[in-house]
């Protein structure tokens, strides 16, 4: 088997980046984002990127770092509320955004990775999202055609991985990572821990290694976006 383990994010990205490319990224808010790979993409200086990601990070973390350096031409996202620099560039016409309903975005990634070029969905029928898209009736209900996404590179974050690329995620940090991984022609995963082959339970692999081409190990900052707690006595 071709060696999948790399020492650093920069080495794992070597030879894959080019101006104008499309990158799919896992994560929801700042939860489960490939923070090391984002930092390395920033350091590479690659530009004119189209980035498919549910969110756009915050100003000083996550995909917000790529926006600071004007490396992103277009975002394909469902919600981008937490990023002032994003909003500034967007309102100034410097950044293009294609809003996708969240489930449509997830399915576009999954479909792209599964060899499905398009699928019909009820989501967005009768809204601006449906404008210009093919409509088709099935069993008396109207659906619109959405296209699968295939990215040049996808970047994801998992809890554990082995040297064959099998991945295990943790709690809600799984989110967009599996569909994003699937839709990349090349997928790079960063994990908190690379474990020996055989250490992961084959019945509990969340993403089979066939989807993962390169893998690196943390450390990760794992920043919390909205720390919300309750008082002990109300438990």
């Amino acid at each position: 088997m071709k060696q999948k383990l790399y020492d650093t994010a920069a080495e794992a990205l070597d030879g894959l980046l080019f101006d104008g490319m499309t990158i799919a990224a896992g994560g929801f808010g700042l939860c489960g984002i490939p923070e090391l790979l984002i930092a390395a993409i920033r350091a590479s200086g690659v530009k004119e990127l189209t980035v498919a990601s549910n969110n756009a990070g915050v100003d000083d973390f996550g995909l917000g770092l790529l926006l600071q350096d004007r490396q992103v031409k277009k975002m394909i996202s469902s919600y981008v509320g937490e990023n002032a620099e994003f909003m500034r560039q967007y309102l100034a016409g410097e950044l293009e955004i294609e809003f996708n309903p969240q489930g449509t975005l997830a399915e576009r990634m999954r479909a792209g990775g599964a060899g499905i070029p398009g699928f019909f969905t009820k989501t967005g029928v009768g809204t601006v999202i449906a404008e210009g898209k093919e409509h088709k009736d099935f069993n008396g209900e109207t659906y619109i055609l959405e296209r699968g996404i295939v990215a040049d590179v996808s970047i994801v974050k998992a809890l554990k991985g082995d040297d064959t690329g099998n991945l295990v995620f943790r709690k809600t940090a799984r989110n967009f990572n599996p569909p994003a991984a699937m839709c990349g022609r090349v997928c790079i995963a960063e994990v908190e821990e690379i474990v020996p082959r055989g250490a992961l339970d084959p019945d509990n692999i969340h993403l089979p290694g066939i989807y993962v081409h390169r893998i690196i190990q943390g450390p990760h900052e794992k920043r919390i976006e909205q720390r919300t707690t309750r008082k002990k006595e109300t438990a």
Binding site: K171, R174, P179, H206, R227
Partner: peptide, 23 residues
């Protein structure tokens, strides 16, 4: 940090909880 709701607030799990991907 790995356990948030759709509003990105920290939350907790229950005994019945199941996790899955966005698709």
């Amino acid at each position: 940090p790995d356990l948030i709701n759709a509003g990105k607030q920290t939350i907790t799990e229950l005994k019945r909880t199941a996790y899955f991907d966005s698709a």
